[in-house]
């Protein structure tokens, strides 16, 4: 039960104020979810580097978590280039060229991974868009695209782990934000678990992320993966997915969850409500569109 937002600048640029854009859009629909706010942001990085973010908490337990994480990283021969203990998270940049899924599953045994990616960084915590920004400095972030989420917890607890965006556990650079409810969650999850996929939470949104990542890893396009997701997922949903260089959406057949999009030559912006889109263009009447039920689409950065 939430609000979602996503934006992608189509030109090959990575210096746009994506952080600021998403803060504005999410603040615009904060009424849809006051419990927590999160951002999935993409920025440029060298090909053999990985950016990792862990939930470590605060105080002494955070320090011991950080020590555990560092030991694990050493075990996998991930060379730490840069690290920062900020808010309740630890961000680490490492040089790593091994199997990311194996690495992620192993490291999860000792630490709570929020995201892993070559260019992805997920920042999420309790409170509104401005609360999270003041703690993590989201506004400073420059990049090419990103997605975000405001959450009103309905069935699971209010805690950082349950906040969106969700990382597709084990798959670098894939994130999702979701508004709605997947009713065949357990059936779908068991199917993926039988194939040895791991889940960090009981949240249905993580399932969408892993499902899509699995399709992509089999060589499908994001467009094709979104198409089958509408067939395979039951329930009410509007979700946004982002990868290293594209974003996409899918909407359930009952059109039970809102979504509005605005597109021009420069950018594509999608949000739960037009009021969020208008935050990017104050005072302007926008030529927006509500995607029809059962539809999906993707946009890529031009290369």
């Amino acid at each position: 039960m939430c609000g979602i937002a996503g934006i992608l600048y189509k030109q090959q640029r990575s210096d746009v104020a994506i952080g600021k854009n998403l803060i504005d859009m999410l603040d615009g629909c904060q009424h849809r979810g006051p419990d927590s706010t999160g951002f999935a942001l993409y920025h440029r990085q060298k090909p053999d580097q990985l950016r990792l973010r862990f939930f470590v908490g605060t105080g002494d337990s955070a320090l011991s978590s950080i020590e555990d994480i560092e030991n694990q990283l050493a075990k996998f021969q991930a060379k730490v280039l840069d690290k920062e203990f900020i808010g309740r998270t630890l961000r680490v940049t490492v040089k790593f060229s091994g199997d990311i899924q194996k690495f992620a599953y192993a490291i999860e045994k000792t630490a709570k991974v929020i995201s892993i990616g070559n260019s992805l960084d997920i920042i999420k915590d309790m409170g509104g868009a401005h609360d999270v920004d003041s703690e993590y400095g989201v506004e400073e972030f420059k990049g090419s695209h990103g997605i975000g989420h405001v959450r009103l917890a309905t069935e699971s607890d209010v805690k950082l782990e349950a906040a969106h965006p969700f990382w597709a556990t084990g798959f670098a650079d894939i994130a999702i934000v979701h508004n709605g409810q997947i009713t065949n969650y357990w059936k779908m999850r068991r199917r993926l678990e039988q194939r040895n996929f791991k889940f960090n939470t009981d949240n249905d949104s993580e399932l969408i992320a892993v499902y899509l990542a699995d399709m992509l890893s089999k060589g499908q396009s994001l467009m094709a993966a979104l198409e089958t997701s509408i067939e395979d997922m039951d329930g009410t949903f509007s979700f946004l997915v982002s990868t290293k260089d594209e974003i996409g959406y899918a909407k359930d057949r009952l059109a039970a969850k809102p979504m509005v999009k605005f597109e021009n030559e420069e950018l594509i912006a999608i949000a739960s409500e037009e009021v969020s889109l208008n935050r990017l263009f104050p005072g302007q009447a926008l030529n927006t569109m509500e995607p029809p039920p059962g539809t999906f689409d993707t946009w890529q950065k031009s290369t």
């Binding site: 039960m1 009424h31 849809r32 009103l152 309905t154 508004n179 409810q181 009410t236 039970a256 969850k257």
Partner: peptide, 12 residues
């Protein structure tokens, strides 16, 4: 009202 989020807007 198709969810808790819409309900907020309805109450308002």
């Amino acid at each position: 009202v198709l969810g808790a989020d819409d309900l907020v807007i309805k109450i308002e």
